[in-house]
């Protein structure tokens, strides 16, 4: 049993990693869910002290199990649910806007909200600058007072 549960946790995480590296958006999200499952079990295994037979409910006779990892995992379960839900809706939205559920195609698509900026090769002046005169200022601009 001490061998079995670590094996289960690593199986879940390993499968999650494989899925996350996949190219389909849905499989990526499934992968995140699998990793969460595995991590929760891993925290429970790693965090517990001596294992006892009673849950941390004080109305039952002790000795009780360590409650702290359980409290942490409870938080983790809820947060991973929020993550999965958000990812799912984001995937939906991304598909609606771009028409693809291919991870890399999504990444390669230009962001419509951000114009493509082309950086011009800055041409710096030579060593001894040609200093213009005071008069060749383009008039106007903010606060111009002609």
């Amino acid at each position: 049993m001490e061998l079995l549960l670590p094996l289960v946790a690593s199986l879940l995480i390993g499968a999650g990693v494989f899925l996350v590296l996949s190219r389909a958006l849905i499989r990526l999200i499934l992968g995140v869910a699998f990793i969460s499952y595995g991590v929760n079990i891993a925290i429970l295994l790693a965090g517990e002290g001596e294992r006892h037979d009673a849950p941390p409910l004080l109305q039952l006779p002790g000795p009780h199990n360590d409650p702290l990892p359980q409290a942490l995992i409870l938080t983790a379960i809820v947060i991973s649910f929020a993550t999965t839900a958000l990812l799912l809706v984001l995937a939906l939205r991304a598909y609606q806007v771009t028409g693809t559920d291919h991870v890399q195609e999504l990444a390669d698509r230009p962001d419509p909200a951000r114009p493509v900026v082309v950086y011009a090769d800055p041409e710096y002046p030579s060593v001894s600058p040609e200093i213009g005169t005071a008069n060749d200022v383009d008039a106007g601009g903010e606060g111009a007072d002609t």
């Binding site: 995480i13 990693v17 494989f18």
Partner: peptide, 18 residues
């Protein structure tokens, strides 16, 4: 390669847990 990588990550988790 991804399979190998996933297995390696799983193995890491396994060994760390042990």
């Amino acid at each position: 390669l991804d399979g190998v990588l996933a297995t390696a990550v799983g193995a890491t988790v396994f060994s760390l847990l042990l």
